[in-house]
Computed example of a mutant assay.
Amino acid sequence: MITFDIKRPDEAIRSALSAKIDNLTKPKGSLGRLEELALRIGWIQQSLSPKLEHPFNVIYASDHGIADEPVSQSPKEVTRQVVFNFLNGGAGINFLARQHGFKIKIVDGGVDYDFPSIPELIDRKIRKSTRNFLYGPSMTAEEFNLAIQWGADIVSDCHHEGCNIISFGEMGVGNTAASSMWMTCLTGLPLIQCVGAGSGLDKNGVEKKYRILKQALDKYDRSNHPEEVMAYFGGYEMVMAVGGMLRAAELNMIILIDGFIMTNCILAASLLYPDIRSFCIFGHCGDEAGHKLLLEYMHVHPILNLGLRLGEGTGAVCAYPIVDSAVRMLSEMHSFKQASITKYF
């Protein structure tokens, strides 16, 4: 696996940021989470006047071998159909990206389909679907390393286009199953607490999904080292997202974290490079069963709770206006001195 140079931002600026926030024309602390977010963003950017520039949402897509088992409401063909919907501008993430000024990059990391040449679709296909982890590892070590590298390279491209705040999304039938396996192996939480409905399984479907994943977990006789777990159970799109997140932190970018799958990706990334957490803002708590537990395990507090479970980066992009408000607070509110207002606390 390639290495990353991720450094926690310098703490020295925090006192100046806090002083600036406390001297804006408001009672101390009265803008709540906006103040907390402003402090974090200024700290990441090492600036008393931070800026959000050219936001991107990167969607990595890949199919999962475990989808050959009855673990998903959707057949594999849905992955490529949704990718075409992304390209045609008709998906949930598309209207949100248009609303909030995000550019989208769509990456084929392993969709089980031969796409024609499409300029808007970035071809980084490693293999047409991962293998079925019920019978062995999803990917080889070589494929894992390539996914990390290519995922990181996409973020470098965004950075070269002026991006300093980025979110990640995913598309891949079977990826909530894979994420449940990452969650139980990397946190030690019981598998039963990590398995949910995915794209819409009913109670019986969830129970069947659990039994299949429990069978796979019982066969797993390797270590719970993050790289081992990621390669054995993960999807190419998930590993690419880990690589993208690590590169974003290396480049001092703000990382907006989406739902259940992307939260598992940042968990895995943070077990490899703990300082990556400094660059993260968690967008929302989703409606997938394990997401709330995972956020609690990581001791993080998301901005929104809207009952979302679509993925694609939708929850992260929905949270962006709140992040933007925090930055605008720092840059546009007057201080007591500027406004000639007696400080009233």
Rank of each mutant, 00 (worst) to 15 (best):
D10E: 14
I13D: 01
L17G: 05
S18W: 13
L24E: 07
P27I: 06
K28R: 15
L37T: 05
R40A: 06
R40I: 04
R40T: 11
I44F: 03
Y60L: 01
A67M: 09
T79F: 00
N85H: 14
I93K: 07
I93D: 03
F95M: 12
L96Q: 02
R98D: 15
K105C: 00
G110D: 11
F115H: 13
R127W: 05
R127F: 00
S129A: 12
G136M: 10
F144W: 11
Q149N: 13
Q149V: 10
V155H: 01
S156E: 15
H160M: 06
G162P: 13
G162V: 06
C163I: 03
C163H: 00
N164V: 04
S167F: 03
M183I: 08
C185E: 12
L191Q: 01
I192C: 02
I192F: 08
V195P: 01
D202R: 08
K208N: 14
I212L: 10
K214G: 02
S223M: 08
P226M: 06
Y232M: 05
V239L: 00
L246G: 09
I257S: 08
T263P: 05
I266N: 11
C285M: 09
G286C: 02
G286T: 05
H291N: 14
H301L: 08
P302G: 10
L306H: 11
G307R: 03
R309Q: 09
G311R: 12
G313F: 00
T314Q: 05
G315W: 02
C318Y: 08
V323Q: 14
D324N: 15
S331D: 12
K337D: 09
